[in-house]
């Protein structure tokens, strides 16, 4: 039973096709982000921006976070088996993400309650750069997880390290470049509700990026020590899914903060 499950598990990742699929998804994500930016500077249609964001999220959730694994047939009854534990852990992780999504959803709703279809004046180039960093990091995260499943430990370490560096670049970009610039432009923490909600949304997201970076450090260290195998690397999958979730949040927050509505 366990053996059959493992081979099925390997089969879903077990070819170079998985790496290629990751690349295709990334190209589509990048293209849609460019389209979003184009929509924003031409007609700023909220409908089109929402459609683009939903398409992006759908692709990340399905191909990078492989949500379909939740529904995979699982007739493992031995509660001490690895297969059963991974399937249960996966369910637990997704329930946690569902819960976490309600915080981000609450801030998203609060943003529209407070600002309606206006948005703070922000540096567009900077926004696009940090967004790209996070999106590219998701590509490398997916690549790292796939490489681990294929048994390529060195590749996993390289890809995950790139993910870490891009994530760090995003975090530093938001906190040490974007925030001072926004404050310099008059969007202060305590000056207006717009400033408050901008710092709350980006701050809470940055906090999640920070925790994601810590998880990445953990799997980098343990991967370096050779504690994961192609069959047993739940921690890698969990860190990857969490990392993509943080990306999914930003896919909504980027248009909500930078693109939708009239700049104040």
């Amino acid at each position: 039973m366990t053996h059959a499950h493992t081979s099925q598990h390997a089969a879903s990742h077990g070819s170079k096709d998985a790496l290629f699929q990751g690349l295709v998804i990334f190209v589509l994500l990048a293209f849609l982000t460019a389209v979003e930016f184009f929509i924003a500077i031409t007609n700023a249609s909220v409908l089109l921006l929402s459609v683009a964001a939903l398409l992006k999220v759908g692709m990340v959730v399905y191909y990078y976070m492989h949500i379909y694994k939740l529904l995979e047939e699982d007739d493992e009854h031995d509660h001490s088996s690895f297969a059963w534990k991974v399937a249960t852990n996966r369910l637990g992780l997704w329930l946690f993400l569902l819960s976490d999504a309600f915080v981000f959803g609450g801030m998203f709703v609060a943003r529209f309650n407070l600002l309606g279809f206006t948005r703070p004046h922000l540096n567009q180039e900077l926004g696009l750069i940090v967004t790209s960093a996070l999106l590219i990091s998701s590509f490398f995260m997916n690549r790292g997880e796939t490489q681990m499943a294929l048994g390529d430990r060195k590749g996993f370490l390289i890809s995950t390290s790139i993910t870490f560096l891009l994530g760090l670049a995003f975090l530093l970009g938001v906190v040490f470049v974007e925030w001072p610039e926004a404050i310099h432009e008059g969007l202060t923490v305590d000056g207006s509700a717009a400033g408050g909600i901008f710092f709350l949304m980006t701050g809470m997201h940055a906090f999640h990026v920070l925790t994601g970076l810590i998880f990445l450090l953990v799997i980098l260290r343990n991967g370096w020590l050779g504690l994961y195998s192609p069959e047993r690397h739940w921690a890698v999958e969990a860190a990857a899914v969490y990392w993509h979730f943080v990306d999914v949040v930003w896919i909504f927050y980027y248009p909500a903060l930078y693109l939708i509505g009239k700049a104040l």
Partner: peptide, 29 residues
């Protein structure tokens, strides 16, 4: 539960950092 957490957190931040989420004079609600 996350939403009561968020509302309390926002009110905490309004007191701690002056983020005017609920201050009408500064565009809050």
């Amino acid at each position: 539960t996350q939403l009561i957490g968020l509302s309390f957190q926002m009110s905490m931040f309004e007191r701690l950092f002056g983020m005017p989420f609920f201050n009408v004079a500064k565009g809050g609600n």
